[in-house]
């Protein structure tokens, strides 16, 4: 953590930090699907968004969310925000669809 003005939360080279814990995990299907979504969106034939926009969105999550969210949570949060900004999807249809997805998953429809 730093209070240096002009230093983004993601720009951490050289900051003090604890030992590197050799963690890894097998990516869950939903994480693989976030990755696939991004690859499809940046594909040259579609070019709906760019990697640079993805990064800008992640950097804009703010210090709290950047460290709190997992890697693919940051990705889907940023991808979604950019798709809304660009008018590819609307905020309203997203909100409705997320509720529909949850209801389906939880067996309440």
């Amino acid at each position: 953590m730093t209070n240096e003005p002009g230093r983004g939360v993601h720009d951490m080279g050289g900051l003090p930090a604890g030992p590197v814990k050799p963690n890894e995990h097998d990516y869950a299907m939903w994480e693989r699907q976030v990755d696939a979504l991004m690859v499809l969106l940046i594909n040259k034939s579609r070019r709906v968004i760019t990697v640079d926009e993805l990064r800008r969105g992640i950097e804009g999550l703010g210090a709290g969310a950047y460290d709190r969210l997992s890697y693919y949570e940051r990705w889907i949060a940023s991808i979604t925000q950019i798709l809304i900004e660009k008018g590819v999807i609307t905020n309203d249809e997203l909100g409705r669809r997320m509720e529909a997805v949850k209801a389906r998953f939880e067996g309440t429809t």
Binding site: W30, A77, I89, E93
Partner: peptide, 10 residues
């Protein structure tokens, strides 16, 4: 849920 919803919409 966000991932599933965005993928479906796209």
């Amino acid at each position: 849920a966000m991932q599933l919803a965005v993928a479906e919409l796209l």
